[in-house]
Design a protein around this nucleic acid. Sequence first.
DNA 1: CCTACCGATCGGTAGG
DNA 2: CCTACCGATCGGTAGG
Lengths: 204, 204
Amino acid sequence: MARTDLKPISKRPGYQAYGRLDQMLQIAAELFSDRGYHGTTVRDIAGKAGILSGSLYAHIRSKEDLLYEIVRRAADQFISSLEALRTRPNPPSERLRLALRAHVEVVAEHPERARVFLHEWTALRGKRRAEVRRLRDRYEALWGEILGDVVPTPDAKYARLLVLSAANWTYTWYRPDGPLSPEEVADRFTDLLLDGLGTKEGSG
Amino acid sequence: MARTDLKPISKRPGYQAYGRLDQMLQIAAELFSDRGYHGTTVRDIAGKAGILSGSLYAHIRSKEDLLYEIVRRAADQFISSLEALRTRPNPPSERLRLALRAHVEVVAEHPERARVFLHEWTALRGKRRAEVRRLRDRYEALWGEILGDVVPTPDAKYARLLVLSAANWTYTWYRPDGPLSPEEVADRFTDLLLDGLGTKEGSG
DNA sequence: CCTACCGATCGGTAGG
DNA sequence: CCTACCGATCGGTAGG
């Protein structure tokens, strides 16, 4: 399970180091999110980085390297933010609230990475695509754990789908510069999910 | 507001007529859904239709014509299926149930068109993109009407986001050949949304 | 709908 | 990271 195919010029620790490679990954994530993987050219990416397209290949081996690395790191963020909650001894409904907060916060922090993780990953092929699918399955399994403690078993499947839908769709509408904080969004969703929205019945 | 830029060779009534153009739209929808608009070539489309790429242009003026026409027709389906419910005098929660059924049924009938409508539309540019955005806004406004009758005003905004998330995310996981009927999915979601999923509390 | 193409652009490389 | 490319493929067209 090769961790990455990026050129081993230097062993950079993480996304936040802001070396040249990290900068290129950030630029690529924005463009892939905006125009899609196939709608983005290596010249677009190089141009935004202030270099010529050929020079990109001093840092990467292929365009797909960039997509893979963005997706893999985003998956790590989503997964580890949920795993961090497992150790805390909270009641199930509180764990649901914290999990939704964690998810929306990851989306809010880097919407472009979230979008690439949740959609553009389909442009990956072969082994890398299969690996990303496993990461996605793992993330969904973590949600299954959380929901299994909240909802009776026969409903847990639909509950998981419902919660994941709400969580995953956020990247299509949430704007970090908008009026809603990630926490506010997550808490409203949690309240509506736990209590239900049927509070006006009989009036129609 | 030009309705279409397709060549006016013949005035075909609708999608179900299965003339040559409709067949090409169906093929294009499947490929766009599968590989994305930019990931699909006109040679892919022509190949699946059993002709050469140049021959496509006897039916269309550009590749974008195909995308636009698929998206426009899909939008019509989603919108009219919700508008059809407005005339019926149902209680609000029942209208929510019927609306979710209608949405999931449209997704289930043609998942590839739903996917193109809900995602690949972003590949459209200029006027066509703006027009599709208006169609999407209109669809969301119809949901706003429905939710406004179910939920108290301050929560209606989040309720609409929650329901639309559940509805719109279905195309990513729903499989027509799977064990779940559209109605079953919609009804489970409706029950969970109306009643809430917090039924195990205190056990964790 | 085919034959036969076109200019533009694509991802990527060699050699500095 | 640049100069200078490469072969392949792209969306699309002219003329039948």
